[in-house]
Design a protein around this nucleic acid. Sequence first.
DNA 1: GCCGTTTTCGGCCCGACTGTTTTCAGTCG
Length: 576
Amino acid sequence: MHNAEIAQHFDELADLLEIQGANPFRVRAYRNAARIVGDLAEQVATVVGDPARKLDEIPGIGADLAAKIATLAQTGVLPQLEELRQQVPLGVLQMTRIPGLGPKKAAALHKELGLTTLEQLRAACEAGQVAALKGFGKKTQQAILEGLEQVATAGQRLLLAEVEPVALELVAALREVPGVGQVEPAGSFRRRRESVGDLDILVTADNSADAMQTLADHPRVTQVLSRGETKMRVRLKIGLEMDLRVVPKESYGAALQYFTGSKDHNIVMRRRAIERGLKLNEYGLFRDDQPVAGETEAGVYAALDLPCIPPELREGRHEFEWAEAGRLPRLIEPGDVQGDLHMHTTASDGAASIREMAEAALARGLKYIAITDHSQRVSMANGLDATRLRAHWREIERVRAEVPGIEIWKGIECDILEDATLDLADDVLAEADWVVAVLHYGLKQPREQIMQRLRNAIRSPHVDAIGHLTGRMIGRRPGADMDVEAVLQELAREGKMLEINAHPSRLDVDDITAARAKELGIPLVINTDSHAVTGFDVLQYGVHQARRAGLEAADVANTLAPDAFRQLLQRRRPPR
DNA sequence: GCCGTTTTCGGCCCGACTGTTTTCAGTCG
C-alpha cells in the first residue's frame, strides 16, 4: 500500500476515534502520523521490508504506530480500522463534513436519534427532531439543512493561481480603507501551497468595523458567515471561504506568524515558547503578560532563538531542524532563473512563433531558452515528425540571428510511448541541443509498465531530463502510478535532470519529490511549458514550489549562465 | 499514542465565534 493511502487510513481512523470520544491527544497522534507518512518521499513499504531501517525512529512515530504502518503497508488492512468502521456508520462520518457539525454533535445525532445516513439527518431536521435535542436548537437545525446542500457541492481547494488575482484584489480594496495599516494575505496562500482551501487576510487597525464592512460589501463576497470583533468569515464568489483577522499594529508580526501557519509549524513554535517560560498567541509573545515580541515576524522568531523561517518552509517538516543547525537554505528566487527549457510554438500547439517566444523571454530577462515542441505521437497538438522537426530546427537556427541577446536551443518534448520506446529515432534526437522526455498517453498503465517506460527513457543517451514526471493535473486527475523513489534513483544513477513544471495545474514534480531529488543530487530545472508569450508568467509558481522543497539556486540547473549549463549538460551526457 | 538535560507518568498550542446556555461546550482554524 502507498503512503498516501496509509495516510488516508490514519485520517479516517482519527475521525472515527474522535466520534467515539477518544482521548484527543491520541486522535492527534493518528493525524500526525497521517501527515508524516503522507509527507515522506520514500515509500514506507520499502522501509518496512528493510531490516536495517526503523520506522519508529521518525519523530511522532512510536512502536505502536510503526507496527500499524507496517501492517498497512504489507497487508493493506488495519484490523482496528475495520472494527471501528463496524461501530461507526459511514453516514455519521459524513455528518462531520457539514460545517458546524463536529464529532461530538454527529455522535449525539447517532446516539440520541439513531441517525446513520445524511438522508435520515435531513428528514430529522425537517421533522424538527434535531432542534429538540439537548445542545442543539433551531439555528443549528437550519444550519445543518443548509450544510447538507453544501456537502453535495463540496468546496474544493482551488489552484493557487486561481485564488491569487482575487486575493490581490481584496487586499487592494482593504488597503484603501481609512485607518487600516498593513494588509497581508496569510495561510496556505502565503506559504505558496499548490492549492488553497481557504483564504486568510490579515489587517492591522485599531477599529475593525470599516475593514469588515468593506469586505462585506465587496462584489467578490457572496455571504457573511460569521462576524465578531476581530474575526470575520465570508464566502467568496469563486467558491472559497475567507477569514479576515484584524489586530492592532503592535501585534502584526505575531498575528502574521500565527495566521500563516501551518498548524504543525505553530504547534512547535508555541512549544518552544513554553520551554522558555513564554506564551505565544496571535497578539504577541509574552512573559507574565508582558510583551517580549510581536510587532515583527522576525522578532517573534528571534525571541525563540530562531532565524526568520521563510513561509514556504513552514510545514512542520525539517525547518526547525535546519534552523537549529544553522542550515536553513537560502531559497531560490524568481530572478535567479536564467533559462527556460520547455516551451511550444506554432509549429505544434503553441500560439506564438519562435521569434515571438524568444523576444518575450528576452524581455523577461532570460538568457537562454529551449524550444521544445511536441513529438509526432501527440497528433492532437500537431506533433512533429523527424522531417518537420528538422525543418523547425533549421528555422530556429535562422531566428537566432534575428534575436540577439538570448540563446535559442533546438529542443524537443519527446513522448515516451506506451510500449516504452521513444517517439523519435535516436539519430534525430542526437541532433537536439536539449531533449525533455515525457509521458502523455497511457497514464493509467500498470505501475510496472510505467516504470519500464521511465527507465528506458532515463537510460537513453539522448534524453537530458524527464518533464512533468507524473502527468498529474492538480484536483482533476492523479498522475501515473509509479515508484517515485526508484525513478529518482535511476535519474541519479544516469546523471539526468528532473523538471519542475511551473504550470499551476501541473507543478509536477511536487515539493516533496523535488526535496528528495535534491538529497540525491539530481539537478532540477524549472520550466514554464509556455504555449504563448504570456506563458512565462507562471515561472513564479514553479519557483515557489522549489522554495517549498527547500531548493537553493545551486540546486536548480537553469539558474546557471548558458555556458555553465551547457558544460553541466556535456558532463552528464554519456558519449553519443 | 507520543515523549523525556524539569518527566517512564502526566503532560500534550491557543483563541474567536456561535448557539445554547445563564457560564460554557463545540467547532474551527
